[in-house]
Design a protein around this nucleic acid. Structure first.
Lengths: 395, 395
DNA sequence: TCAGTTAGTTTATATAATAAACAAACTATA
DNA sequence: TATAGTTTGTTTATTATATAAACTAACTGA
């Protein structure tokens, strides 16, 4: 069965897979009702899907209160294939292997300086080491999805600010070595895909990440919005203060110069007149209720809140998930931001801390992998799959 | 034939209509090639469309250089129905009637103060007066699309800042009186639809309008993006200068306070210390190369350019169409803006003056009408249809 | 004049959906 | 504990819709 081919039967087959993947306790009858397709049609499609090992029957459910035959619940045949995801940073590689339902098999992190010279070898090693331990029938490893800290367009890296891997053709070289489809995507975009996969309520959401720079992944109508050249999330370089601090991008007053993790540390160092101060020093100062540090945090939160209001005003989302180590270690900063947000126009827009944190782009890569393999335009994950896994690290 | 019903044949029929509407010199053979559907299938669908008077044969084209039978060109049966569009402002009603291909039949403008008390009667009069002069068979008036200067969601007005028509159920009252489908949409969104209809090149574009306030209509992947509650274009209330000028919305430093037509006049009045100064006075000062006015224009253009860069950074469009009387009467302001734009990151994004000007939302309303009637997800108009029309006005 | 080409139609066939009848497996209750 | 009612899922006959192949129509160009 080739899920890519376009025919009536194929698109209906994908529809059925999508329902089984993303729904809860799906039976043939329920799928027929949800899709509007005839019970007989669903029966035949499901028979083929079971024959091809995409789907399994997991036993009977309960009859409804009015009685009647028990439904046979269907699920994706999770062990039929494995998704392999990689978060590629300038100083570390993290990987995540999952079954087809997103259930985690293994996580692994390796700390090492990455460059165009060693990246292929390192990634190939990661994959091959995993393959010696796990295999899946009949599909094997369905794809490798890589989170890139940089601008990506049409499965190609256009720019990476922190390392030189934009100078090689990562996808082609990996595919040649491994003979498995390789997909790459921007880190913030993948984080957004992940938030959407775990958020079954909202259709318009934004994943707002504050690290070295500022990025945003945009989900509109449950679909990732990438912009014309994949640069939609580059809001770090929108201008917050006209004629403000000079930015490396050439402009002055970029949001990134006021709201990023880097800028927060710089502010603190300036305040303390000591450029050796670290984030831990900042946290300590906050915990000791140092007055000038508290004020600094308030100013920082205000700048973030202005940036967030601008995002709300342009995209009109339902919810914004903020993702940053700052929020993990200074949890009450969120309420300071809320205080600064003028909620009158944006009453209905919710601001939440990301539940996935630094792992979000890895989970997003898994979403991308599964979307591509099963031709889905949406993937929903069960809450809980994230935690049930062996975690290893070389650190 | 019910184009709304979902079936294989229906979606293929819509596909054929879409090709005939939006393509150039379409024949059965060409449609078959473009859609991938079999020639026989296209023949049958076209036969039905001709029978139901949606489509007409307009004669034979030329054979290809290699010879062969001449193709029979197909076109939408433009005179089968009439689209009626209305631009509803606080002080005037403009209307535009077109055939199904967007060709203009009549334009009409009436200047009058509009309120919830008189709006229904005025609009009904407009439509009925038109109907005494023109009819179309077999579909008649296919719909009435109204451009609203305010926030619209789910075919309902949520807020109009300049008049009180948000206090009545405009759509329901009109439909009850006229028995014709009524569609409403935000003015900036409709402008964007219009720009997209005349721009056959770009897939991601923004219509940026500067009038009393500032608005933007967003087209992503040739589709209108409305946000979760239809407020995506409300960028006038993003913050340009933190802690800047107080805005009516409650926040400080909104873009609207620096880049709108209103704010330009206010700046000029402050400069000349005379709150009676008009836009014409400003133009005169510019023409006389008044130094302080030239500087004012430069500052104004700079603020607009910052706002535009922020839009570029968030949406990553291919082209932005600016729409404002300011640009009509001060044509070189565009080059001043271009000068201020830091083009390094946004090299590929084009900035153009709207070709439709103040009429754009009317044409956009026509697009909406036709999209709804023919179940299309895209409408392309021929350049040139805008001008060939009788224009009347009561002024 | 006729071979080659392209457009569009006809006909037979294949694909895929549906409706209706049915079997299987249950609940509730008289 | 029989039985009426309900729901799930399958089977069968039928309908809807697309396609391939052969055809006609109408052209070009040598």
């Amino acid at each position: 069965m080739d899920l890519k081919k376009t025919s009536t039967r194929n698109s209906n087959t994908i529809l059925v897979i999508s329902n089984i993947m993303n729904g809860y306790q799906m039976s043939r009858a329920k799928i027929s009702e949800l899709t509007g397709l005839n019970k007989a049609t669903i029966s035949e499609i499901v028979r083929n899907l079971i024959e091809d090992q995409y789907v399994v029957e997991i036993g009977a459910g309960e009859s409804s209160s009015a009685g009647g035959r028990k439904p046979i619940y269907l699920e994706i045949n999770k062990k039929a294939g494995i998704s392999f995801s990689i978060d590629l940073r300038s100083d570390q590689i993290s990987s995540l292997a999952t079954y087809l339902n997103g259930e985690v098999i293994e996580k692994y992190t390796e700390h090492c300086k990455i460059s165009k010279e060693n990246v292929i070898e390192r990634l190939v090693n990661h994959v091959q080491e995993f393959n010696t331990k796990y295999t899946a029938k009949p599909f094997g490893m369905i794809g490798i999805a890589i989170s890139i800290h940089g601008v990506v367009d049409e499965n190609q890296i256009s720019f990476t600010p922190y390392f030189d891997i934009d100078e090689i053709d990562l996808v082609k070289e990996l595919e040649d070595r491994l003979n498995i489809p390789v997909y790459i995507e921007n880190e913030a975009n993948l984080s957004a895909l992940a938030e959407a996969a775990y958020d079954h309520e909202h259709t318009h959401l934004i994943s707002f990440s504050v690290h070295t720079g500022i990025g945003a992944g945009i989900i509109l109508d449950r679909q990732l919005f990438r912009g014309f050249k994949g640069r939609s999330g580059e809001i770090g370089h929108t201008i917050l203060y006209p004629d403000g601090i000079q930015c490396a991008c050439g402009n002055k007053g970029c949001f990134e110069q006021y709201g990023s993790f880097t800028s927060l540390i710089r502010r603190f160092q300036t305040l303390k007149k000591d450029d050796q101060c670290t984030f831990d020093d900042l946290i300590e100062a906050v915990e000791q209720e140092d007055a000038e540090t508290t004020l600094l945090i308030d100013h920082f939160a205000k700048d973030l809140s202005i940036g967030l209001m601008n995002i709300m005003g342009t995209y009109d989302p339902e919810v914004i998930y903020v993702n940053s180590e700052i929020f993990d270690k200074l949890p009450n900063i969120l309420s300071i931001i809320e205080k600064h947000l003028d909620r009158s126009i944006y009453k209905s827009i919710q601001l939440s801390k990301s539940k996935l944190g630094s792992q979000s782009s890895l989970y997003g890569a898994t979403v991308l992998n599964l979307k591509n393999f099963l031709s889905l335009d949406e993937v929903k994950f069960d809450i809980g799959y994230t935690s049930t896994a062996a975690v290893r690290s070389n650190k």
